[in-house]
Computed example of a mutant assay.
Amino acid sequence: MTAAVLQTDGLVVGYGGRPVLDGFDFALRPGEVLCLIGHNGAGKSTLLKTLFGLVPRQAGRILLDGRDLAVVQPRALTAAGVSLVPEGRGVFPGLTVAETMSMGMWAAGIPKEQRPQRLEWVMSVLPALKTFYQQRAGTLSGGQQQIVSIGRALLSQPRCLLMDEPSIGLAPKLFQDLLQPIRTLQQRTGMSILLVEQNVKEALKISDRVIVMKSGAIIREALPQDLADNAKLMELY
């Protein structure tokens, strides 16, 4: 059996001595889009941040390709093919998109001679980047800023993409316009995506599997079509 790309075993994470995730087990399979849904405070974003090394764990294991990660650090995970699109986009308003992407390539450790081709590849996935490439991020719309955030995450050509609430502040149509190129890329390359999302209806359209969380625990695992009925979804919240 193929090892999960990312997996947790008995994961314990908390703030101020209070656990948010307590003995949490989950697995992201190769080549799937796994959507993580649940009410605010369920622990979804905490899980993503912990998987990427932004929040320390108190106990349990995080495994990458079946290997136990003794230390979880963003730089090492990026080098191993894992990338994060953070909640709130995380763009610097005073930097131009060009400067943001340049900094992203430096942070990802992409060799200088490979950077022009890498940038061209990202723009082939997200062609809208070209239209505001010289603008400062602070002058862009929410949707444009999200394109920048996703583009920056794709610079390392990840095989595993973590996306934390990418729809915040976006109209459903704009959200779909953002996600469809990512879904197309995922299907073409076999990339795995862990998507944390409140806009459940739109997220289900591009997902292969769904995990529902409540109070730091998984209460249901389902296929998107199983949750297409709004009444079924409301029962889970």
Rank of each mutant, 00 (worst) to 15 (best):
M1K: 13
T2L: 13
T2K: 14
A3K: 13
V5L: 09
L6G: 04
D9N: 12
D9F: 03
D9Y: 03
G10N: 11
L11R: 05
L11E: 08
V12N: 05
V13S: 01
Y15M: 04
G16V: 01
G17W: 03
G17H: 02
P19D: 10
P19F: 08
G23M: 07
L28C: 09
L28D: 09
R29H: 13
P30D: 04
G31P: 08
E32S: 12
V33Y: 02
V33N: 01
V33H: 02
L34K: 01
C35S: 07
G41Q: 05
L47M: 07
K49W: 01
K49Y: 04
L51F: 02
L51D: 02
F52K: 12
F52E: 12
P56N: 01
G60R: 08
L63K: 12
G66Q: 10
D68E: 14
D68C: 07
A70C: 03
A70S: 13
V71S: 14
V72C: 12
Q73A: 15
Q73H: 14
P74K: 12
A76L: 14
A79G: 13
A79L: 14
A79C: 09
V82L: 08
S83H: 07
S83M: 05
V85W: 12
R89I: 05
V91Q: 00
P93T: 04
P93L: 02
G94N: 14
V97Q: 12
V97N: 11
S102G: 15
M105Q: 13
W106E: 15
W106T: 13
G109K: 11
P111K: 05
K112A: 14
K112G: 06
E113M: 07
E113I: 10
Q114H: 13
P116L: 09
Q117T: 12
R118M: 11
L119K: 13
M123H: 08
M123Y: 03
M123S: 07
S124E: 15
V125T: 12
V125F: 11
L126H: 11
L126G: 08
L129E: 06
K130E: 15
F132D: 08
Q134D: 15
R136E: 15
G138W: 14
T139K: 14
L140C: 10
S141I: 11
G142D: 04
G142V: 03
G143I: 05
G143Q: 10
Q146Y: 09
Q146G: 03
S149G: 02
S149D: 05
S149H: 04
G151E: 06
R152D: 04
R152N: 08
L154Y: 07
L155E: 06
S156Y: 10
P158I: 09
P158T: 07
M163T: 08
D164N: 06
G169F: 09
P172S: 00
K173T: 11
F175W: 02
F175A: 14
F175Y: 09
F175H: 10
P181M: 01
L185I: 05
Q187V: 03
G190R: 10
G190W: 09
M191H: 05
V200N: 01
E202D: 06
A203P: 00
K205Q: 14
I206H: 06
I206K: 06
S207K: 03
V212D: 00
M213I: 00
K214H: 14
K214D: 14
G216A: 03
I218M: 04
E221W: 00
E221Y: 00
E221R: 08
E221C: 00
A222Y: 00
P224T: 00
D229G: 05
L236D: 02
L236F: 02
Y237N: 09
